[in-house]
Design a protein around this nucleic acid. Sequence first.
RNA 1: GGCGUCGUACCCAAGUGGUUUAAGGGGGCGGUUUGCAAAACCGUUAUUCACCGGUUCGAAUCCGGUCGACGCCUCCA
Length: 463
Amino acid sequence: MSTQFYNSLTKKKETFKPIEAGKVKLYTCGPTVYDMAHIGNFRAFMFEDLLKRYLLLKGFEINHIMNITDVDDKTIKRSFDENIPITELTKKYTDRFFEDLKVLKILPANIYPKATDHIPAMVRMIENLVKNNNAYITDNGSVYFAIDSYHDYGQLINLDFSQQKRTNRISSDEYTKDKPQDFVLWKSWKEEDGDVFWESPWGKGRPGWHIECSAMSTEYLGNHFDIHCGGVDNLFPHHENEIAQTICATGEPFVNIWMHCEYLTVERGKMSKSQGNIFRISDLVEKDFSGETLRYILLNTHYRSKLNFTMDKKHEAVQVVQRITDLYDRLLSINKTVENDGSLPEEYSQFEDALDNDLDTPGALAVFFEWVRKTNIKLDSGSLREKEAVTGLNFLDKVNSIFDLIQEKIEIPKEILDLVNIRQKARQKNDWVLSDKLRDKIYDLGWTVEDTLTGQKCKPLKS
RNA sequence: GGCGUCGUACCCAAGUGGUUUAAGGGGGCGGUUUGCAAAACCGUUAUUCACCGGUUCGAAUCCGGUCGACGCCUCCA
């Protein structure tokens, strides 16, 4: 089966074929670092991580660029409100963003370009657009893109501007534009911008939001590259505008495949500060969600389906993570004298087929769990051959390279180990009363002990 | 008002014309195992895919309608 991805541009699944054989140029819209990102933001980043991990599994070499938006209305307002320099604000939240990525085990991008480091490239692009008559300059020194100059405008989303609901923003805000739907490329300086501005041929100001992604993506990946991702909310206006301005500026094809992941909702609605239902990664870590459990929750729903995040999803995730980790431990503990020939179980091809089908993670997990059950049966009966243990570990490595759900080993503290050893002696003497008492004590200290055929197995309490 | 997505068991969630008289996970119940547990495993939990019509030899899957949920229409992952 060929690898197929749903392309938002053509609205159907397409066989993936990179521009350059064996290499993928990937651009993903990154965070605006005016505040901490929340679980909804990270759903998109997790989806992109999944995409990237799968392409890596398929053997592609990937150049992944993720931008950091460190100047926009929100960053300026926030730095003003908090009375700290904008660079200090954005540094703080950029650092927090990277910490969260680590918690979620999201693989790092090759480069994280910052918008403020690429103003000249944006200015050059805007100059091109002005030169090509795709953009116009207003009296106050702002530059707008004229959407009428790009006839293919509206490929990602079907919008009938004549039927558009009139919002306050359109009617009151942008009176200097030729057409309400024209979007800003360069925003002229206003008093509330303070010292946040750059010099340009049109006077001092700052770039519009959309132009940064156009400038940075083409700078690092070339004018024409393979995949561009984001959340569905980026479809319009962000990506629609990006397409228009980039194609008009470069005169070349832009992106082959646009991929968007659906919303994450909380209690069936959008997260919003007014409702107090924003979950940040650090909040969830405090509530005992691990990176693995969050990964399972986010990856157990197909990326193009809505995902309703609730606290009670934790239980299922915890169980699954533990089950997989336990199986991994069981296979590891088998003495293996055979050489690893890289073999994989027959389920592997179905696993890959599921992911080939537009990253069907629930389908892939279903195949995987069938295999987990079969393997546990063999383990229980002692009929698993050494060779199968090796093959199984190979499969787990592959699965883990995508899902990354196996928990890292935590060293058992000496205090616990001592109790386990005392318990061992008690058990040899059939002193069940003491044995059970010690088990309770170990439990109270945050650990569990299971009595297996090969002796006691100690692990931290699930969270 | 315009555009669009979705509605599958107690919960989560694949499947989008025939190998499905509907995967997988969690939970419940009943077992095997265990000194007892835990873990693992076995059985069970939707004759049915929001509802009503239609197309077809055949539909959860296609078409029309109804109801319900959600999103976009220039802040948004």
